[in-house]
Design a protein around this nucleic acid. Structure first.
Lengths: 157, 157
DNA sequence: AAAAATTTGTTGCATTTACAACAACATTAT
DNA sequence: ATAATGTTGTTGTAAATGCAACAAATTTTT
């Protein structure tokens, strides 16, 4: 007897779809929040800024890997942040090679803190529907999953 | 005594960052897979196709909401799918208004199934590191979270 | 020592994307 | 009845993005 009950598997039901859609909505919401609160830098600039604050003296390529932009666009984002006086860039060496490293300026730290203060209560309001513990658990599972992904994806950065 | 232990909260630690990064990596991996397996349509076209298969007779705007593209780009994706003979479009009414609805062609169903068969084992291999039950749980929490997001995000579609 | 390959950042270009304006039609308000 | 508003899809355009080519410097290979 043949099994005619073929299980249809749809992208819609997958974790991949749920991830993509949730992330996209989250991005839309945050961008709308940035607009509403009249935050003067873009979301991408803000996450780059935060990443630099957490990794003082990082070089461009390493930052690119963290924010998952290519080298070209990372450079452009940094141009903008430097022009606004939020970061300083300097040439240094890494493995005997000349690289451009960067760090926060006082102005950049101040700006980052102000933005953080502005958005944090809003974002807590959004994540609030799901219990905090559950959210942490999801974050941790996602992290494990992501770390595994990083080994499989061919990064051209 | 003043509390000088100010808790620094960074974007890097947030569920938002983890979501964005995981989703982006997942997208990169899937696109590389599409390339490797010589799948002839784009990832976006594929998810649109899957969505149409799951929602026969859907109109363009409703599809746009599901795939989170704007109406313009949804139309362009559909142009491409129609040109390839994977979907058929027809004018119908919805609330007494003329709308363009669509459905799968036999060719489209065949193509979708072939693509599904090709990628499914690869993707299971990726999600495999995390126990299936845990993955389902994450998906469900994400869904709750996303449904809440949908109420807060202003959709201009 | 010369040639080839590697690393890092920049520039240019082609594709993708989002957003606004528009056309066609229907509904509601005046 | 006429005007104003709303819905759906298309077109045009400006911005974002990714990719390939390049320059400058270093390391490895021959």
């Amino acid at each position: 007897m043949e099994n005619t009950n073929i299980r249809e598997i749809h992208f819609t039901d997958s974790i991949h779809y749920e991830l993509a859609k949730t992330a996209k909505l989250m991005k839309m919401l945050t961008m709308q929040l940035f607009d509403k609160l009249k935050i003067e830098i873009s979301l991408d600039e803000c996450s780059a800024l935060d990443m630099i604050a957490c990794n003082d003296g990082i070089c461009q390529r390493d930052l690119a890997k963290l924010i998952l932009k290519d080298r070209a666009n990372t450079g452009r984002i940094l141009d903008s942040l430097e022009e606004k006086g939020f970061i300083k860039r300097f040439v240094d060496t890494k493995n005997n090679r000349l690289v451009k490293k960067m760090g926060m300026t006082r102005k950049g730290l101040k700006a980052l803190r102000e933005i953080s203060d502005k958005i944090i209560s809003y974002l807590e309001n959004v994540t609030g529907v799901v219990p905090h513990e559950e959210m942490l658990k999801v974050r941790n599972v996602l992290r494990d999953f992501r770390l595994n992904l990083e080994n499989k994806v061919e990064m051209k950065i």
